[in-house]
Amino acid sequence: MPLYVPPAPAPALRSVLTALGSPTAVRAARTPSLCAAKGPTSAELPLPVHELDRVTAAGTSPTKLTGWRFLIRSGERTVAAADTMLTPDGWAFSHFCEGPYIASAERALRHAEAMPTAYQPRLLSVPELYMLTLWLHADCTDDGAAGSLAPTDLLVPLAPAPPGIAAHRPHRAADLLPVLTHRLTPAPLLGSPA
């Protein structure tokens, strides 16, 4: 099934294209693959980046939109990603990055395209666990900036995933959230020694 990629806000895309067109911004990025890219680069596959605020006892999971991530391609390969952030003046370029999450996200997206159900792809960050997941939202008509995590949505942890959580294995949100809740809940303090 095809993935229904939500359109990124035009100012977010413009800010990334401006940064790509600036030799100063690309050199300052210190991403070897982007600096070594030959030929033109393009910003593709915009994904809204949401952050998991908390997992509640009722199992609901409020998220907040923190930015948009664009994959940067040069020729036939992805060489980096560009992140944008929301500022008081609107969407602005944040930074270029590269590393294992980019290849992992591409792999997860390829697998999602082969699934029998259509999804809207997003990224979901769990900062406390240093975890990034591909969030496959079941309601393809939702605005990518809105919508909450539904129990039937799929979460695909990207590599490297936290210990004990398998990367690239799709989990229903209702199944993975309790595991994350357990990980995020502080252990009870033991009594002081006598």
Rank of each mutant, 00 (worst) to 15 (best):
A92T: 12
V179S: 11
A12M: 07
T78C: 14
P100E: 11
L45D: 07
R183I: 09
R77I: 07
S33C: 05
G164D: 10
R169E: 15
I72E: 01
P6W: 01
L180E: 11
H95Y: 04
P2A: 12
G75F: 02
W68K: 06
L184A: 13
T152L: 10
A25Q: 13
I102T: 08
F96D: 02
T133Q: 05
E51G: 12
P9M: 01
P163E: 07
L86S: 12
Y4M: 14
E76Y: 09
G191E: 13
V79Y: 00
P40K: 05
T24P: 05
S148E: 09
P23L: 12
W91C: 04
T78V: 15
A161C: 13
V79M: 00
A159Q: 04
V26T: 11
D142W: 13
A58K: 11
P170I: 03
P186T: 15
A58N: 11
A43I: 02
R107G: 04
P88L: 02
R107L: 10
A25G: 06
R122W: 04
P163Q: 07
C97R: 11
V49A: 07
L149Y: 00
A187F: 10
T60E: 12
A103G: 12
G147T: 09
C35I: 13
P7L: 03
L3W: 02
L13F: 00
A81D: 01
D153Q: 11
T63C: 02
V26A: 06
G191V: 10
L124R: 07
S61P: 10
Y4R: 08
I165Q: 11
A57M: 05
V5K: 01
R54T: 11
L45T: 12
P6E: 02
L189D: 15
